[in-house]
């Protein structure tokens, strides 16, 4: 489904590469946890796989399409349909309600979001346990609830792959576990999840555990 071949990436001003000849594959339905110390290159790998970052060399293939060869508008469309992102910080727009934040991905043009998509957003919020809080602003929700809205936002475009960058990083253990339960549930429903985390416990529960060090995959 998703294949990385010999990815290298060196940030400007950095001596050592953030990614050093990284290759990996992700199969449909996988739950891949990427772990490693800070600076090991795990977030860079996630960003490259999710098309947010372009590698210096190497290539990423998605369903046998070389993503490096796709024009930027197709990559934008890929991120709005097939791929979704969940971040450590929820990154909700503070001036929009929960349901509006979930619908944000449909607000790219002058066409109205429409009832059907709005209902889909409500269903996504219900799926992450936020029924009745659709019209709350982010500031009126707890940290865990905000992260759940972010997951609902990732779900609403019905993606095939969710990329999650330390989604529990800013949450307490109990709330983090709730978020992980949702992600594991989505994976059981067939959505592929690629997640970066510091938590070895979550990595153990994942179907596949990739460990990184100094820009290289050392196991998995």
């Amino acid at each position: 489904m998703l294949e990385a071949r010999n990815l290298t990436k060196t940030y400007a001003g950095e001596g050592s590469p953030a990614l050093d000849s990284v290759s990996m594959t992700v199969q449909p339905g996988d739950f891949v946890c990427i772990t490693g110390r800070s600076g090991s290159g795990k977030s860079t790998l996630l960003n490259v796989l999710s098309t947010l970052l372009t590698p210096d060399t190497g290539e990423v293939l998605y369903e046998d399409m070389n993503l490096a060869l796709l024009p930027s508008r197709k990559l934008d469309r890929l991120r709005g349909t097939e791929f979704s992102m969940v971040f450590q910080m929820h990154h909700l727009l503070p001036y929009m309600t929960a349901v509006e934040n979930v619908c944000l991905t449909f607000m790219k043009g002058l066409g109205s979001v429409g009832t059907q998509r709005r209902n889909l957003a409500m269903e996504c919020l219900e799926r992450v346990g936020l029924s009745g809080k659709e019209h709350k602003l982010p500031g009126e929700l707890s940290g865990g609830e905000q992260q759940r809205v972010a997951i609902a936002r990732a779900l609403v475009s019905e993606p095939r792959v969710i990329f999650a960058d330390e989604p529990t990083g800013s949450l307490d253990k109990a709330t983090g576990q709730e978020v992980m339960d949702i992600l594991f549930g989505l994976n059981r429903d067939g959505i592929t999840v690629v997640m970066v985390t510091h938590e070895p416990e979550y990595a153990r529960l994942a179907g596949r555990h990739v460990q990184m060090e100094d820009g290289r995959i050392i196991s998995g």
Partner: peptide, 16 residues
């Protein structure tokens, strides 16, 4: 910038 980054991450094009 955070908001712009988010929009780009969820599929907003540069034109949008």
């Amino acid at each position: 910038k955070k908001e712009i980054g988010l929009m780009r991450a969820i599929g907003f094009s540069r034109v949008s």
